[in-house]
């Protein structure tokens, strides 16, 4: 086998990509918002895909983009949306000594693995030119479908099991009667009869509908001309980005008067109320 050489182009690629990837990875440690982290990690994944291709693993590089960046990281983002993008995590440590331990473990791993890889007596790199003679995908396939056919079949079983497991884990058993449109209407009228606001009877408008601005931080106005507090997304409230409702005078100035007597202020408990209704 002949010794391979690493082209300077590859070196340039590495030295550009590697710092970017490390910075993206460091986002895992220091970024506060989960979404930012997810995007940073996705970037690292793409970087890795490029490195795979540089390392003569074309098939894996493509698979990396498809599987990780395309599926796994998007799944992460999806779950983040599901759980709530707004849930920023405080970086204050609660376990005593955890930071120190983590630092010790991280630095220790780094130093030791660095020491091992640099001090190890490794053979001269051979390169995959020979193995990739019939393209990389064919080469991988040859090994995958001969020596590793049985593990390959097993992975099929594993994936099916994972799918079924995910289904059963997220499955929710309906404990009460189905709460359909009819029941919802009855419940709304009942609440109204008990003295709740009349806005509850009608359908909820989408955020910003009938509002003065076409903006999510403005409460919608119902058919009676009253503002619907619940139409403001919780995200805005948590971020403190909702603005106060304009006063009646301002509205009147704007030529879009509200109904009389309503205190046009954001209700702090609105988010809770909405959650209760959903549940």
């Amino acid at each position: 086998m002949t010794e391979m050489t690493i082209s300077s182009g590859e070196a340039v690629l590495f030295w550009i990509l590697a710092p970017l990837m490390v910075m993206g990875a460091l986002g895992l440690l220091f970024a506060r918002r989960t979404v930012h982290i997810a995007v940073a990690v996705a970037g690292v994944m793409v970087g890795l895909a490029v490195m795979y291709i540089a390392n003569e693993a074309t098939f894996l590089g493509v698979a990396q983009v498809v599987v990780y960046t395309g599926a796994v990281m998007m799944l992460f983002v999806f779950v983040i949306m599901l759980i709530g993008v707004d849930s920023t995590e405080s970086l204050k440590e609660t376990l005593t000594g955890q930071r120190w331990l983590a630092a010790l473990a991280g630095v220790g791993l780094l130093v030791l693995m660095g020491a091992i890889t640099t001090r190890a007596a490794l053979p001269a790199p051979v390169g995959l030119a020979e193995a990739n003679a019939d393209t990389n995908a064919v080469g991988v396939a040859r090994i995958l479908f001969s020596d590793f056919i049985f593990p390959f079949e097993l992975t099929g079983a594993l994936l099916i099991t994972a799918a079924v497991g995910a289904l059963s884990l997220t499955h929710r058993v309906r404990l009460g009667a189905k709460f359909g449109q009819k029941e919802m209407a009855a419940a709304k009228l009942k609440a109204y009869g008990a003295g709740a606001s009349s806005t509850l009877i009608t359908n909820r408008p989408n955020p910003g509908v009938y509002a003065r601005h076409n903006s999510a931080d403005m409460p919608a106005v119902d058919a009676a001309g009253e503002p619907v507090e619940a139409s403001i997304t919780t995200v805005l409230r948590i971020r403190g980005q909702e603005s106060n409702l304009p006063s009646a005078e301002e509205l009147a100035d704007a030529g879009r008067p509200y109904g009389q007597g309503e205190e046009p202020a954001a209700v702090p408990g609105a988010a809770d109320e909405r959650k209760e209704l959903e549940q």
Partner: peptide
Amino acid sequence: ARMHGDLTGQVIAFFVMVVAAAEVVI
């Protein structure tokens, strides 16, 4: 894999990827 001129490493990496996908789902 590149260092040794042997594609088996890439195959193993492929398996890691598949298993990781399943693990992520669960």
